[in-house]
């Protein structure tokens, strides 16, 4: 009786895993071994790791994802800290989450309106006498917009881990003679590490393949692996090569997960 009851709970979960996680990943691996004529081959991997184009693209993707993650983190942590101290913090955090209710494409188009040559930002610059700047299609604008989109996903886990800290820890820290700065760096920050790490994972991984933004805001001057995947699936119909890049992205994500997880274990042992 008890066993069948448990199975009832497990079955949907395992079915979900098998159908929507294991099967798609398996299919990507499977397709990555076929060339454009549907013959079995390892050529896709050989091409990827011997081509300067793909390797530079990988380096670009990792670099931009790193920058986006770093900037979101630098902005998010103080913001989460401040919000967690405010009186109506639930309301403030709601305001932070609000932009995620709007579709990504709409946000991108809104930024086009802001950053374009005759856009709002340049009009404001004009009022203070700064000449119009070229802002669209630059690295800076791409990183700005990508960070803007990712910030709510970084703030939320940090905010949650901040509100989990009991006030007694902070009082104890002060009682033992720690300054505010020491309390922050020696007590609060280490205790929010799990939140920071999940924030990094949530932001870094999707940032590896932001192909819509790299076209709309970056004007395809920034080419990440996502751009190549899109091209292989939609234009050249070379699903094999597209899947190979998919496998590389999956591996990059696994590495990112491992880097953020092992550190936590080590800290616990210490």
């Amino acid at each position: 009786m008890k066993r069948s009851f448990r199975a009832m709970f497990y079955t949907p979960y395992f079915l979900w895993l098998a159908l929507f996680v294991i099967a798609p990943v398996g299919l990507i691996f499977y397709y990555s071994f076929f060339n454009i004529r549907h013959q079995f081959t390892f050529d896709n991997y050989a091409t990827f790791f011997s081509s300067g184009t793909y390797l530079t693209m990988t380096a670009n993707s990792v670099l931009y994802a790193f920058l986006i993650t770093l900037i979101s983190l630098v902005i998010s942590y103080p913001m989460a800290l401040v919000i967690s101290r405010l009186r109506h913090r639930d309301l403030w955090i709601l305001l932070v989450i609000l932009p995620t209710w709007i579709n990504l494409l709409l946000k991108a188009y809104a930024f086009i309106g802001l950053l374009s040559h005759d856009g709002l930002v340049n009009q404001l610059f004009g009022l203070v006498g700064i000449p119009a700047q070229h802002m669209l299609f630059t690295d800076a604008s791409f990183i700005l917009v990508a960070s803007y989109i990712q910030i709510p996903f970084m703030i939320l886990p940090i905010y949650n881990s901040l509100t989990d800290i009991s006030d007694s820890y902070i009082k104890a820290s002060h009682d033992l003679g720690a300054t505010n700065w020491q309390t922050l760096t020696k007590v609060i920050f280490p205790m929010t590490m799990p939140g920071v790490k999940s924030g990094i994972q949530i932001v870094f991984i999707p940032s590896l393949s932001l192909f819509m933004l790299s076209r709309l805001i970056g004007g395809n001057k920034i080419i990440t692996l996502g751009t190549a995947v899109e091209e292989h699936f939609l234009t050249t119909m070379n699903w094999g090569m597209g899947s190979t890049i998919g496998v590389v992205l999956i591996i990059a994500m696994v590495i990112a997960m491992m880097l953020t997880n092992t550190q936590r274990k080590r800290r616990r042992q210490a």
């Binding site: 454009i36 004529r37 184009t53 530079t56 693209m57 395809n220 001057k221 080419i223 751009t227 190549a228 091209e231 234009t235 050249t236 119909m237 070379n238 090569m241």
Partner: peptide, 19 residues
């Protein structure tokens, strides 16, 4: 042919990567 379509696209991608 699919191979030539691929070559056109690969070379075009290299151009896009060029700064």
């Amino acid at each position: 042919s699919p191979e030539k379509v691929q070559q056109y696209n690969d070379l075009y991608l290299e151009f896009k990567m060029h700064h």
